[in-house]
């Protein structure tokens, strides 16, 4: 009985949220925040991949921004320098990034814990150095501009209004895919790995292969976000793909809750609003805040801020219903 009521509530909530999301980009509603919302969507895509990796397999990646960057650069170079269709470029970028991450993962996922973290950090830095140094194809530290917009037939995504829908279409699609993965047999296997690798192995789960696959998947998510990023800004430089960017992604995952798919939106939104609205013009004050967030959340609520808030609300609701 209770389950039924709860489900009805969920449908109502999802319907209302979707309606709000559709209406948001109109000027009379929140149109001036379209750029911010696009970036929240892009970051959500990368973060949800990171959540799958960190929250469900217990592996850490301190170089996730690099895969975001690889997607961005492949899309930019193919579509601008070689005139490839942007959609095809995006597909190629996703496949190449995924294959690359699979290969890398095959090598480094033999490592664990601290060593794995440092290896992902190091690889992220190497990729970032390549973005800067291979200036003949990437444009070096100054970056490259003039990247075409995406379009379907004669319909081009020329305004932020249209790109808002484009980005969030992809974002919701990736979130739903992640949701399905988590709820499937694969998801249970991943949680088993997080619980105990030895135990998971003993019941016939191929631990190493699962980890590498999820790592590759998270890289594909990042790559898709990267492609959308360059077709939105029409400009790409190494700056948004460095170490600090990777740490910011971890901050988003941590705020949203490492093992929470929908928390990724919350994490990305909080972080972007902090950086691009509230603390804009305060130099790197946001870095200090992120440092504090990472420490405080991991010390006092390692399951994540979003998950903790959800728990508090559920507790509060069960208390009030008991009184009635």
């Amino acid at each position: 009985m209770f389950g039924f009521v709860k489900n009805k509530w969920i449908y109502f909530l999802v319907g209302a949220l979707l309606a709000v999301m559709v209406l948001i980009p109109f000027d009379w509603f929140m149109g001036k925040y379209n750029t911010l919302l696009i970036f929240i969507g892009l970051n959500t895509m990368v973060t949800v991949g990171l959540c799958l990796l960190m929250g469900y397999t217990g592996q850490v990646s301190l170089g996730q921004a690099a895969y975001y960057g690889i997607g961005a650069y492949i899309s930019a170079i193919l579509s601008k320098t070689y005139g490839v269709n942007p959609w095809l470029a995006m597909l190629i970028a996703a496949i190449v990034t995924g294959a690359f991450a699979y290969g890398i993962g095959y090598l480094i996922f033999r490592l664990k814990g601290n060593y794995l973290a440092m290896a992902t950090l190091g690889l992220g830095l190497i990729i970032w150095i390549l973005f800067r140094q291979l200036s003949e194809i990437t444009g070096g530290p100054d970056g490259m501009g003039g990247i075409p917009y995406l379009s379907i037939g004669g319909f081009g995504f020329y305004t932020t209004f249209k790109r808002y829908y484009l980005v969030w279409f992809f974002c919701l699609a990736l979130l739903l895919i992640s949701q399905n993965i988590v709820r499937s047999r694969t998801g249970r296997a991943l949680r088993a790995i997080h619980g105990s690798e030895d135990a998971a192995e003993s019941i016939g789960i191929n631990v190493a292969q699962f980890k590498v696959k999820i790592f590759a998947l998270s890289a594909v998510f990042a790559s898709i976000a990267g492609s959308l990023f360059v077709h939105h800004l029409r400009f790409v430089s190494p700056q948004p793909f460095g170490f600090l960017a990777s740490v910011k992604l971890v901050v988003m995952a941590v705020i949203g809750g490492l093992a929470s798919i929908w928390g990724a939106i919350f994490g990305a939104a909080t972080t972007n609003i902090l950086s691009d609205e509230l603390l804009l013009g305060f130099g790197e004050l946001d870095t200090i805040v992120y440092g504090l967030i990472l420490m405080l959340v991991m010390i006092f609520m390692p399951q994540g801020l979003f998950v903790k808030l959800k728990e508090i609300i559920v507790q509060w609701r069960s208390k009030t219903t008991q009184k009635v």
Binding site: Q59, A117, T287, G291, L292, I299
Partner: peptide
């Protein structure tokens, strides 16, 4: 805390000091 938590905490310390 788990190893992953400790990594994230010390990363937090690091960017806090840096900022």
């Amino acid at each position: 805390a788990s190893v992953v938590s400790l990594i994230i905490i010390t990363i937090g310390v690091s960017i806090f000091i840096r900022g």
